[in-house]
Design a protein around this nucleic acid. Structure first.
Length: 416
RNA sequence: GCGACUGUAGCUCAGUUGGUUAGAGCGCCGGUUUGUGGUACCGGAGGUCGAGGGUUCGAACCCCUUCAGUCGCCCCA
């Protein structure tokens, strides 16, 4: 009678905020993206690497700079039993750079690396943005030549094209120049914006001290009039930096990859040099960047390694998968043969047939539960190419093959 | 961290100014019908109305808190 008579309710633990359980069509799209990437990276002879999901926190904090919000608020960090601070990887680049140093991969330089897997950032989830998300990643470490930048960009372009989502995606390209160019431009930007400080948005006034380059891509309309007339990187590029960028754009043109100049495209971190790029779509709301990267010649030193030129990109699998799904690029997943046991006396025959079909390379499903009368209908409703109905008559087992658009001869040979 | 919107059955959603025992479609399970078949009909299971607290004679509905989702801001390595 009373409520206490009921067994205690066991509360189901909830999934962690910002994580996803990917299933069905979404999972198929996800797999399609990863499989396409694996195929492409082989074409470009990038070597597959498997990396740890966590590292010492210093791997990321040194490369990012201790002071940024990114380190203090947006990493999944924790202490292990020895009191050491560890962090779930928020990106691939820092871990790959660490591995390059600690494993002596200099011997393979220039080395072309590709990997993919889960990454973690402590952020508020929104469209195309999760706390555990997944990226494809390609890096060329130990190559100072613009041809490396070009190769990566051409590979990225081919990936998007083969995924069938290149329409509506544009490659935005910029150069940040070499170290000197970059610093000169940065100083000029600070001078310029400081002169207009009072008219800038609150956010941008704050950025002025923290991250002045970011004012350039502010979304606040109050900043727009000033960003248009802000100093341009082109006026501060050294001859070497100009030459480098010209070789990148020339390579892209030669390879038939279209691009647009995006002078406001910047990177917040100091180790970025020269090429910066993003493939951007207008179809994913505020999270329009589908693939992005650049040259990070300054990173290796911040991890205690020898100065090493490097360039790479990463792409969000979830965002790519969304575009792939929207574009209808994932083939329907159909069963080749559905074996229906319409009479339980035919069950052993049914189990034998599905096994034979599967060993013969045809995908097969067995329907042998629920009301026998409704099993055939269940098969009809499923998305199958052929139905093998097994019944039981006066003479024992009866077999009927109803073809939709399967390979009849092959099926009959396998169940003979 | 901030803001807006949303949480009712496995799914998609109704639910009147706050008023008896919270509904539908789809799906699922069972039965009947049909019988080279995707039909139709009948029945059934399935709900702490996201959670906690408050107001009230009475709350899915009003208020507060909290959790989660969605979209955006900040950030974006």
């Amino acid at each position: 009678m009373s409520k206490s008579d009921k067994p205690a309710r066991i509360e189901t633990p909830q999934a962690i905020r910002g994580t996803q359980d990917i299933f069905g069509a979404d999972a198929e799209a996800f797999a399609h993206v990863v499989e396409t990437f694996e195929r492409i990276r082989r074409l470009y002879r990038f070597r597959r690497v498997e990396m740890p999901v966590f590292e010492k926190t210093t791997v990321f904090s040194r490369s990012l700079g201790e002071t940024t919000d990114v380190v203090s608020k947006e990493m999944y960090s924790f202490e292990d039993r020895g009191g050491e601070s560890l962090t779930l990887r928020p990106e691939f680049t820092a871990g790959l750079s660490r591995a390059y140093i600690t494993n002596g991969w200099q011997q393979y330089a220039p080395v072309k690396l590709a990997t993919h897997g889960p990454l973690f950032r402590y952020e508020r989830p929104q469209k195309g943005r999760y706390r555990q998300f997944h990226q494809l990643d390609a890096e060329v470490i130990g190559a100072a030549e613009p041809t490396a930048d070009v190769e990566l960009l051409v590979m990225a372009d081919q990936l998007l094209k083969e995924l069938g989502i290149a329409d509506g995606v544009t490659l935005q390209l910029n150069t940040l120049g070499d170290g000197e160019s970059r610093e000169a431009w940065r100083a000029a930007l600070i001078d310029y914006f400081r002169a207009h400080k009072d008219a800038l948005s609150e956010d941008s006034q704050d950025r002025l001290e923290r991250n002045p380059l970011r004012i350039l891509d502010s979304k606040d309309p109050r900043d727009k009039p000033f960003t248009a007339d802000a100093p341009k990187i082109d006026d501060y590029l050294s001859a070497e930096a100009q030459d480098f960028f010209a070789k990148v754009t020339g390579g892209l043109d030669a390879a038939g990859v279209s691009w647009v100049r995006a002078p406001a495209l910047v990177r917040g971190l100091d180790y970025y040099r020269h090429t910066a790029f993003e493939f951007v779509t207008d179809r994913l709301g505020a999270q329009g960047t589908v693939l992005g990267g650049g040259r990070y010649d300054g990173l290796m030193e911040s991890l205690g390694g020898a100065p090493t030129p490097a360039v790479g990109w990463a792409a969000g699998v979830e965002r790519l998968a969304m575009l792939v799904a929207d574009a209808g690029q994932v083939a329907e997943d159909r069963t080749e043969v559905t074996v229906v046991v319409e009479d339980d006396r035919a069950l052993t025959a049914g189990m034998g047939h599905v096994a034979a079909l599967r060993r013969g390379g045809l995908s097969a499903e067995l329907i042998a539960s629920g009301s026998p009368r409704k099993r055939f209908d269940k098969a009809v409703k499923s998305n199958t190419r052929a139905i093998l109905a097994l019944g039981w008559g006066d003479e024992g087992l009866t077999t009927r093959l109803r073809n939709v658009d399967g390979d009849v001869a092959r099926i009959e040979a396998l169940i003979a």
